Computed example of a mutant assay.
Amino acid sequence: MAEMSVEVVAVERRLWSGEASFVVAQTTEGEIGVMPGHEPVLGQLVEGGIVKVTTTDGQTVTAAVHGGFLSVTGDSVSVLAESAELGEEVDVERARRALVEEDEAERARASARLRAAGQSV
Rank of each mutant, 00 (worst) to 15 (best):
M1S: 13
M1A: 13
E3K: 14
E3R: 12
S5E: 15
V6Q: 05
V8K: 07
V8P: 03
V9S: 08
A10K: 07
E12H: 11
R13D: 05
L15A: 11
L15I: 08
W16I: 02
W16G: 02
W16A: 10
G18L: 01
E19A: 10
A20I: 04
S21T: 14
S21K: 12
F22T: 07
F22N: 10
F22W: 15
V23I: 08
Q26E: 15
T27W: 01
T27F: 00
T27L: 11
T28H: 10
T28E: 14
E29Q: 11
I32E: 09
G33W: 01
G33T: 06
G33E: 11
M35E: 03
M35I: 08
M35V: 14
P36H: 06
G37M: 07
G37L: 11
G37Y: 05
H38C: 00
E39G: 00
P40C: 04
V41T: 14
V41W: 14
L42M: 14
G43T: 06
Q44K: 14
Q44Y: 08
Q44E: 13
Q44I: 15
L45Q: 04
L45D: 11
L45W: 01
V46P: 00
E47A: 13
G49Y: 04
I50D: 09
I50A: 03
V51E: 00
K52R: 15
K52M: 08
K52P: 00
T54Y: 04
T55N: 00
T56W: 00
T56A: 11
D57H: 09
D57N: 11
V61K: 07
V61G: 06
T62G: 04
T62Q: 10
A63Q: 04
A63E: 01
A64M: 09
V65L: 03
G67K: 04
F69W: 14
F69N: 02
F69P: 02
L70V: 13
L70R: 08
S71N: 09
V72M: 05
V72F: 07
G74L: 06
S76G: 04
S76A: 14
V77Q: 01
V77H: 04
S78F: 08
L80T: 05
L80C: 04
A81D: 04
E82N: 02
S83T: 15
A84W: 04
E85R: 14
L86V: 03
G87K: 11
G87P: 12
G87A: 12
E89L: 12
D91R: 08
D91V: 07
V92E: 06
E93K: 10
E93A: 15
R94S: 05
R94A: 15
A95C: 10
R96S: 02
A98R: 14
L99K: 01
L99E: 07
L99T: 01
L99R: 03
L99N: 05
V100D: 11
E101R: 13
E101W: 05
D103I: 07
D103G: 14
E104Q: 12
A105T: 09
A105I: 13
E106V: 07
R107C: 10
A108G: 00
R109E: 12
A110H: 03
S111R: 15
S111A: 14
S111K: 15
S111N: 14
A112L: 06
R115A: 15
G118Q: 09
Q119H: 11
S120V: 15
V121C: 03
